[in-house]
Design a protein around this nucleic acid. Structure first.
Lengths: 226, 226
DNA sequence: GTTCGAATAATTGTATACAATACTTATACA
DNA sequence: TGTATAAGTATTGTATACAATTATTCGAAC
């Protein structure tokens, strides 16, 4: 397993919550597990920190980046703007090879949904959107976009309940959005991509809000009667 | 000189073009110069790479990140959006301590303009805008914003001509914008901050365009007569 | 029983030696 | 003279030992 593979492995575990937010990443045990020495491992941890997966505290090691309430708020504030911008640029700049790649990823995502494995769903969904980020090819937006995707994956998973049939239905809606996005990107229709991304975003947002605040009306009524 | 100080020193040299884009950053000579061993120096270089100051190529070392034509285009495309968003958030979130800090920075910028030292102007201007980024306190926008600021500093400096009196005048306009931005942030007037940032941006953009393409009409005429 | 502090253990940070890779130069051959 | 190849040099990547810092444990005093 080379450095890049270890980096990818850790990132995947973080965004699928197999490594939970806030957990300490001890150097010695990771070295043992991946069979490398501390020097390259530390570089990997710092690379993950640069992407926002990991927080490093001086003399106190690395931790999977936490998900505070403020983070959630900033996330909802920022994501639509960056996602839209990336979508428009992707439609303008995508080349044939990138389109071929995203189609492969989309099929993996489809298979993950059919199989019902939530970890795979989260992972391939993330790969789909990361692939759009590559297409946009804008070095200034990319770092923010990647950061948003990491937390989007983790936030979604936090509230995901595999038993809920409503969620399964929505997964297929997301899959349809992806198909339509690919078509719009191929057609170079930036506005259509943006519209789809907004629709896609609202699906995701509603899903999360549903779990964060399942019945806001009940709260209002309780307050009124107190 | 501790690690943070060395990081700051290198970053300052990069954004003031004392270290020019594309130049190789040899580990051995930097170690000698800063009197540290290669391990911490490599971490510094990787931290700079994470901010977009430096590009690292496998087995071939670190280079000051280059400024291609594409970069310039992406920059003009992206900066207004991110700058506006940061400005609005800064007005919403700034606290008293941050306002005190930005005032100190603004005075250093004023002194730099009065002294006519372009390196200091670029540096303190950058620090002013970075300070606004801190106020915005949005972890998703920050990485993109910081990246934009690095190249903004370098692009401005590329086209700066200290002898041109027109430029000196514009510097004082920029200074006034900054003063007004501080006032608007203190008043919590997000829209006013955004308006000022757009005005400020256009000043900067016009300045750069003036040097990139000093007389577009002449070009048109030459084409017409060919 | 609790709290404070010192000793000890564990963990991170740095220096340095060695390994692997890339670059340069010199020489042979066309 | 130009090119290709090989030896040698320089530079980056990794492992490991040591230093510095932080965390834990144990014991003593209150």
């Amino acid at each position: 397993m080379d450095k890049q593979a270890i980096f990818d492995d850790l990132k995947k575990q973080i965004l699928t919550l197999q490594l939970q937010p806030g957990i300490a990443l001890d150097e010695a045990s990771l070295c043992k597990r991946y069979e490398i020495s501390r020097t390259p491992l530390r570089e990997i941890l710092r690379a993950l920190a640069a992407e926002g997966c990991v927080d490093i505290v001086n003399n106190r090691g690395a931790y999977v980046s936490s998900m505070s309430h403020k983070v959630l708020r900033d996330f909802f504030l920022t994501a639509p703007m960056i996602y839209s911008a990336i979508g428009r640029l992707a439609a303008q700049n995508a080349n044939a090879q990138q389109l071929a790649e995203i189609r492969v990823i989309q099929e993996k995502f489809r298979a993950a949904i059919d199989s019902g494995l939530s970890v795979d769903m989260v992972y391939w969904n993330q790969r789909f959107h990361a692939s759009m980020g590559e297409m946009a090819e804008n070095p200034y937006l990319k770092p923010s976009y990647d950061r948003l995707l990491i937390d989007h994956a983790r936030i979604s998973q936090t509230f995901y309940r595999p038993r809920d049939p409503e969620l399964a239905k929505r997964m297929y809606s997301a899959l349809d959005h992806h198909d339509e996005m690919i078509a719009a990107i191929e057609a170079g229709d930036g506005q259509r991509v943006v519209d789809l991304i907004i629709e896609h975003w609202e699906l995701s947002r509603d899903l999360i809000e549903y779990f964060v605040n399942p019945d806001p009306l009940a709260f209002e009524m309780a307050a009124a009667t107190s």
